[in-house]
Design a protein around this nucleic acid. Structure first.
Length: 843
DNA sequence: CATGGCTTTACC
DNA sequence: GGTAAAGC
């Protein structure tokens, strides 16, 4: 049961891994609980007695005043007299952080609706592997079913670029061969990089939705890092906060490493990192990259050496392992200095307090997760003369009974202490105790099912499944379910539950309250995680799956998705044939420790498997039915229907989540689509029509494109000569999305009136200073849109919207001024598809 | 005496 | 199983 899993090195750049990190989480929790303090400088303080207590979280207004962690409450007051200092509650004489735990769970439940591959890393951090969603979206885009709107990239940054717009420009810029550095890159490498960039970009759009959902459903804001592995995602998340997200493009890793202290890398932040710096006489990750693996292994241990070696190349193979619940539940307390426990009575008292808390939390856990801890561990530190000695002893945990637990803990301590009591004393400890802790672990399923409620069974199964420790039926995994589907009582869900052996599918008492509904969602989504994982166990990672007739492997899917992209680069070699045989698994990164560049030669093309979702036959992704595709379309296209919120008071940190709410607010009056006859909300009709248009266009373009390839035409793509299909003439694409987007800006800026304003360097408008960053984000996003349009216009007739040169010209400024009611359908607007799909097919 | 409480992981 | 390290 070695819980840590690794992916094949062949897949090292295939995943899209996200680290979601709640911004000053404890402060946010306090703000939510006490709205009166919202927006004020806040620091959460723990443990009162000494000088205002210790600060464990600081919000951004307070940070602006110089308040930091590691300060005392009093000190914070000096820096910031009007700071609010909520205290973490105390129960039984010790800190009680359960409300933050609960809040963290709430957030995780939302995250889990996006992917079963969720790994909680702490109370306020979680890793997500969204590879599947990215590929799905990529396909939808290629098929014209999804448009990557610029607002999807608001508040997004890319390492190494000043703005996300610049990054997108760069992606398309590669076209002109204006790649900065050496021409060492082969075509294949360029394609690989480009694929990577595109996937990261799409990933960012998804992460924006994820963060929006978190904000909407919990009220909390978070930051995120988007990269190809956990360590880099984590690192990247820290680059822009709060309430922002950052992409780490493959190409920027080595540049970044040049200045990145190795101690910033998770795992090297402590003594080990110090040792590495000292022994190797280095500071940065780039320097680390100069050492051969063997050398690193000789200085440190073998495992560590390999890990560092790969890490120095930007590679981390650790899988995102589904995990929602902790593996242990414990509590502890320190008794520093004079507070050391010197008497048995006192010892018993504190053991009792700890045992009580443990009992309470274990019961709650039993309730929620239907599992029982079988072992408890007591930890303690004794003062022996000068130094403190800490020990831990484990005993089996028979029942959730505080007295019993306390007594057993005491026994364990006695048993392991040579001289427990001072000689001739009945109550004085020979060795004062400076630290006490009790924790419970080694959980097993509660087979007995102490709860009469059958729902308990659900949650039992689901949680078991969630952590991947259940039975091993290899079942076909359903294609990723869109959030909404997961929430509702979809047939699939019930089927799964039934399959697992539950007889009762009533979800009555679980669906109403917020907490319970989240539990239910976790049930359904975790079932999927189970399939993903159990299958994985039975799968040989190294061998590409052979596909069966009507099924499509993820790898094949990816190959197809990128078909059009890779085509033009690979000259005559058209698609990267999906079935390409497994390359020698180790041929990539053996021999150039001195170069700090990332070797990608065998990465994307050769890697035909999506890591952590390896496919045997049982995981082959089914081609979706028309229904499911339509469903997905519904789910994903009109930016999730969400509750509108008053834009009443926008404070400085109220950013993306607010602005990204649906732009067309009018109640959905339905209209019949002239193209397909479906009922479509009127507000969505235009984009719906755009979809049809894009579909046609994209199909046709692809057709043409293939023809071009066949005729071995290699140079810049010819403009599409024929007009995009007679049919589409009828379709009047809506006012450019960019305009709707601009109306959002206006709303936003007018709603925050009285604040001080600054003139925007981009558009000259007066913008509330505190909103400037967001405002600039929108310019970046707008440029992105223009970029995309430019690509579009290489085939679609240019129409005067946006520049054709690659300079960031201001031809668009005119349009910036324009605003119109979002519902208005502008007849003057050119027929244009604001879709990345065409963008891809053109590249 | 002074961040404190908490959890996980790797190694022995 | 116990310990130390690491990070939040």
């Amino acid at each position: 049961m070695s819980s840590k899993q690794f992916i094949s090195i062949n897949n090292k750049y295939d995943r899209i891994v996200v680290l979601v990190d709640m911004d000053c989480f404890y402060c946010q929790v306090e703000e939510k609980l006490n709205p009166e303090i919202r927006g004020k400088p806040i620091a959460v303080v723990q443990y009162n007695p000494w000088q205002g207590g210790g600060i464990i979280a600081v919000n951004y207004p307070a940070r602006a005043k110089g308040v930091t962690r590691h300060m005392r409450g009093d000190e914070a007051k000096q820096h910031c007299p009007d700071i609010v200092l909520p205290q973490v509650p105390q129960i039984r004489g010790k800190a009680d952080i359960s409300k933050y735990r609960d809040a963290g769970k709430e957030v995780a439940a939302v995250l889990q609706t996006f992917t079963p591959l969720l790994e909680r890393a702490s109370v306020d951090e979680a890793y997500l592997d969204i590879t599947e969603r990215v590929l799905t979206r990529l396909r939808d885009m290629n098929e014209g079913k999804f448009q990557l709107l610029p607002e999807k990239l608001a508040n997004t940054f890319a390492v190494g670029y000043d703005s996300i717009g610049e990054f997108v420009q760069k992606i398309s810029g590669d076209l002109d061969g204006r790649t900065s550095s050496q021409e060492l890159e082969s075509e294949e490498e360029r394609v690989a990089f480009k694929k990577s960039d595109i996937k990261l970009l799409i990933g960012a759009s998804i992460v924006n939705e994820i963060r929006s959902a978190v904000k909407e459903q919990t009220g909390y804001e978070c930051s995120a890092g988007i990269a190809h592995n956990k360590i880099l995602a984590k690192l990247t998340a820290g680059f822009h906060k709060p309430n922002k997200q950052t992409i780490l493009p493959l190409k920027c890793i080595s540049k970044m490493y040049d200045t990145l202290s190795l101690k910033k890398v998770k795992g090297l932040g402590g003594k080990l990192g110090d040792q590495v710096c000292e022994v190797l006489k280095i500071q940065t990750m780039s320097e680390l990259g100069k050492f051969p693996e063997k050398v690193l292994q000789s200085h440190f241990d073998e495992r560590m050496g390999s890990w560092m070696y790969l890490m120095a190349k930007g590679i981390d193979l650790e899988a995102v392992t589904p995990k929602f619940n902790s593996k242990s539940i414990g509590c502890c307390k320190r008794f520093p200095g004079k507070n050391a426990i010197t008497g048995v009575a006192t010892l018993k008292h504190w053991l009792g307090e700890l045992a009580n808390e443990i009992q309470e939390r274990l019961n709650k856990d039993l309730d929620e997760n239907n599992r029982i801890a079988k072992q408890m561990t007591v930890s303690y530190a004794q003062q022996l003369g000068q130094n403190d000695v800490s020990s831990t002893r484990s005993v089996s945990l028979i029942e959730y009974n505080a007295e019993r637990i306390a007594a057993d803990a005491l026994e364990a301590i006695k048993r392991n202490t040579d001289v427990f009591l001072k000689i001739d004393s009945t109550g004085v400890l020979n060795n004062p105790i400076k630290f006490l802790g009790i924790s419970a672990g080694k959980f097993e399923d509660n087979v007995a099912g102490r709860k009469s409620d059958l729902m308990q069974m659900f949650s039992n199964i689901a949680n078991k499944v969630k952590d991947g420790e259940s039975s091993k039926d290899a079942r076909k995994e359903e294609p990723t379910l869109p959030t909404q589907q997961v929430k509702s009582d979809s047939p699939q869900v019930e089927t799964h539950i039934a399959d697992i052996g539950t007889t009762d599918n009533s979800t009555s008492n679980m669906t109403e309250t917020k907490g319970n509904s989240s539990r239910k969602m976790s049930n359904t989504s975790s079932i999927k995680s189970f399939f993903g994982k159990s299958v994985k166990q039975n799968t040989n990672v190294e061998e590409p799956a052979t596909s069966t007739s009507d099924e499509l492997t993820i790898a094949q899917m990816e190959a197809e998705l990128f078909e059009d992209l890779s085509g033009p680069y690979l000259n005559s070699t058209l698609p990267l044939e999906a079935g390409a045989n497994s390359s020698p698994k180790d041929d990539s990164c053996e021999q150039n420790p001195s170069s700090s560049t990332i070797n990608t030669s065998n990465s994307v093309e050769d890697a035909h498997e999506v890591p952590t979702m390896e496919h045997s036959e049982s995981t082959l992704l089914e081609v979706k039915s028309v229904e499911s595709i339509n469903q997905q379309l519904e789910d994903v296209k009109p930016d999730k229907p969400s509750t509108q919120k008053e834009a009443s008071q926008l404070d400085y940190h109220q950013t993306y989540a607010e602005f990204s709410r649906p732009i067309c607010l009018p109640e959905p009056t339905k209209k019949v689509c002239p193209e397909c006859g479906n009922n479509v909300p009127e507000s969505d009709l235009q984009s719906h029509l755009d979809f049809h248009f894009a579909l046609l266009l994209s199909q046709q373009q692809r057709e043409e494109f293939r023809n071009e390839i066949k005729t071995k035409y290699v140079s810049p793509l010819p403009a599409a000569k024929s007009k995009p299909v007679a049919n589409s003439q009828r379709v009047k694409p809506k006012a450019p999305l960019i305009d709707r987007f601009l109306t959002v800006i206006n709303t936003a800026s007018t709603s925050t009136t009285n604040a001080s304003t600054t003139e925007c360097s981009e558009c000259g408008k007066s913008v509330p200073t505190e909103n400037m960053q967001e405002h600039l984000d929108y310019h970046a996003a707008r440029k992105l849109q223009i970029e995309l349009n430019k690509m579009e216009m290489k085939t679609v007739k240019s129409n005067g919207f946006g520049p054709v040169s690659s300079k960031s010209s201001d031809a668009s400024n005119g349009s910036l001024k324009r605003k119109r009611p979002s519902s208005a359908c502008d007849k003057n607007q050119p027929a244009k598809v604001n879709s990345l799909a065409a963008f891809f097919t053109k590249m």
